[in-house]
């Protein structure tokens, strides 16, 4: 099997230093919507200048390079075990090259491993065998500030008057945006899962963030709800960094998943404005990035 460590290192570099065009475009729109001279506009202009600087210097957009979340789709014949080793080697090398901050901390001793390699959950790697002969590796870097404001609701929730329906999902999502205030580095993007158990619901909420910003949900009801949560989230007026302003939520993606009769979870993963997401595609000898 081919050694892709070098190509994976490039994937990590890209993800950490070069914000995807769909995200940057959305940030530009958000900046333009804020009043010139306002703190919100100042924050957005600073963010955009920073994005350009990070790209130009090949340095991390944010010092919190987060949990590396890998999603690998591999054709028959590839070995997940050796891909894991290659990903780990690339992550360690990226840390040495300061594309990543050493972020893996032993929860008991407090010791930082220094190379971003912890246990089987850090970095997080999801494998899926797929049809065809194309290998894709997606990488999302999700920082701790936004991870900490993620939330899970068990419906019905009396305080929010949220029942087990899409209206209940709307209520839970808006409550999560309110509670996050500016702490998750607003303006942010929401990955929302409906259903699952507690664990699979969080995973599904992160998988929802694999979509591009402009993707439209194939379910029209969910597409409408995504638009409504985005629009009402912005009405909250929390604004960039929580300074107050028009841009609070830049997009929402909803993923329904199966649940037990007894459970109805709504899980919100909040992604900060530094929505670092890149994909590498290996097709024959060709390796491309988007």
């Amino acid at each position: 099997m081919r050694d892709l460590t070098k190509e994976l290192l490039e994937l990590v570099r890209l993800a950490s230093t070069d914000l995807p065009p769909d995200v940057e475009k959305r940030l530009r729109e958000a900046a333009a919507s804020e009043e010139p001279g306002s703190a919100a506009r100042g924050a957005m202009d600073t963010i955009l200048a920073n994005v350009a600087l990070a790209r130009g210097n090949s340095t991390p957009i944010c010092q919190d390079t987060g949990t590396p979340l890998f999603f690998v789709r591999f054709p028959e014949g590839w070995s997940p075990r050796s891909l894991r080793e290659q990903i780990k080697a690339a992550v360690a090398e990226a840390t040495k090259k300061t594309y990543l901050r050493p972020n893996a901390v032993d929860s008991l001793s407090g010791k930082n491993t220094g190379n971003n390699l912890g246990d089987e959950h850090f970095p997080t790697i999801h494998f899926e065998e797929a049809d065809g002969d194309t290998l894709t590796v997606e990488l999302i870097l999700k920082g701790g500030g936004c991870e900490n404001v993620g939330a899970q609701y068990s419906l019905p929730n009396d305080a929010l008057k949220a029942g087990r329906d899409l209206e209940g999902v709307r209520r839970a999502a808006l409550d999560a945006v309110y509670r996050a205030q500016g702490e998750g580095c607003a303006p942010g993007f929401l990955g929302i899962a409906i259903g699952g158990d507690r664990g699979s619901s969080y995973i599904a909420s992160k998988e929802a963030l694999r979509h591009k910003v402009g993707d439209v949900n194939s379910n029209p009801d969910l597409a409408a709800l995504e638009a409504r949560i985005t629009q009402e989230g912005n009405q909250l007026g929390i604004g960039p960094m929580g300074f107050g302003g028009k841009s609070t939520v830049l997009g929402a993606k909803i993923a329904p998943t199966y649940r037990l009769p007894a459970s109805f979870f709504v899980t919100i993963s909040y992604m900060c404005w530094a929505y670092r997401r890149r994909m590498m595609t290996v097709s024959g000898e060709q390796v491309s990035y988007e």
Binding site: N50, P60, I61, C185, W273
Partner: peptide, 13 residues
Amino acid sequence: LHAIGGAAPLIAG
């Protein structure tokens, strides 16, 4: 004092 979250290379400057 509030700095801009995520503005990492800019502040490093």
